[in-house]
Design a protein around this nucleic acid. Structure first.
Lengths: 218, 218
DNA sequence: GTCTATATGAAGATAGAC
DNA sequence: GTCTATCTTCATATAGAC
């Protein structure tokens, strides 16, 4: 049985491949296709993998469930696209923000900027990113498999940030690079469980998280 | 429509109330009841709320799905019991470990011991604890509601640990008590996403996480 | 491109035999 | 206490009309 998430010819208007669409800005691709993904991301974010139904997604874009299959081959193809777009989006957000800093910027500032960008994508701007985080562990293995390359690419950014930190002698004493990376991803990725826009400030959270990870300049 | 998770008379052999059973050790309660909860915890931990079916749980204890209803009024009653037992278990684990320390123990040691106990319950010993974490956000509001009191009680432990830290002047500069608490719960509770017994040591992780949260003695 | 109608399966829950 | 049988609902997915 095919899971329908492997790239293969689709009868889509534009003929773009099903997986790996990267342009969240919508520079290409059919209107409906992006609208469906937007709705799916929104519902996946709040309801999770199993509680998100094609009927819900279809209703959110003013369609019936059957019509979805003109645009996507399966539910899992939609989920995979949302998940991968979500990771790619937070990757682009963080990388863009880091590129605006001078290469010689203080490592503490780099970490703080990266955290702020990550939290902002996760909590404010991208249903895709939070949907991906929430749905990942419930999705079928084929979907998770397709997501792994994207995730690894993103996690490498944090590997580099942490390495810079250690090379600059600014990591807290007694912590390995590996643990530092897992710790920062954990505090950030757990935040959807408690974050309330009215109670917390992303700006402040980023500053304080960075303070935990980076030693003050000697 | 009743969700079936509110305590009410059950036709159970022992007549114990449905929710809030605290004795994980099984000092009381019917054999089948605890066996069902054990199986439910194990399956919930790996499959999550929606993908855990009464048929699966029943099969795991050598029953048919219909028979479950002799012991529990609904799936959500089972889920709520697992979740609440899970929180109570990690609370007892952490509190017991802390009680073994002298009251005047170094705050760093207290934090490290608490982290080790939490990680140990979450990753090694209790299906209930990890099941509760994984199922919480997918469970119906009535189940989450029933869990809140338990969670709050547990989180208060970390509030106290962090307060001690700040009073002792050992918290990292520039971090609030609130953020410190959310950060440590985040790095710990995200760990089921990446932890592999063959690759990580709970002992080491606890030491390194504690190093992040507690300043070296001046 | 979207619809209606439907095939197919699986879920939670109940009734009543044993 | 557990079983079988069944009710009801709702999911993904397909076929074919428009």
């Amino acid at each position: 049985m095919s899971t329908g998430i492997n790239p293969r010819p689709m009868r889509s208007r534009t003929g773009r491949r099903a997986l790996g669409s990267v342009e969240l800005a919508g520079t290409a691709g059919s209107r409906s296709r992006r609208e469906i993904l937007d709705a799916a991301a929104r519902i996946l974010r709040s309801h999770g993998y199993h509680a998100t139904t094609l009927r819900d997604i279809a209703a959110a874009v003013g369609m019936k469930a059957g019509s979805i299959y003109y645009h996507f081959a399966s539910k899992d193809e939609i989920v995979a696209a949302v998940m991968n777009d979500g990771v790619d989006h937070v990757l682009n957000t963080v990388e863009s923000a880091l590129r605006l800093l001078p290469p010689a910027a203080d490592p503490r500032l780099k970490v703080e900027v990266a955290i702020r960008s990550h939290l902002s994508a996760l909590l404010e701007y991208s249903d895709y990113t939070s949907a991906g985080l929430k749905a990942y562990s419930d999705a079928p293995e084929a979907v998770r498999q397709a997501a792994r390359a994207h995730r690894r690419r993103y996690e490498a950014i944090w590997g580099r940030l942490v390495d810079d930190l250690m090379r600059a002698g600014r990591s807290p004493p007694g912590t390995s690079a590996q643990t530092l990376r897992l710790a920062v991803l954990g505090m950030m990725n757990w935040s959807p469980e408690w974050y309330r826009p009215t109670r917390h400030s992303i700006e402040t959270l980023a500053r304080e998280f960075a303070a935990l990870l980076v030693q003050a300049k000697a």
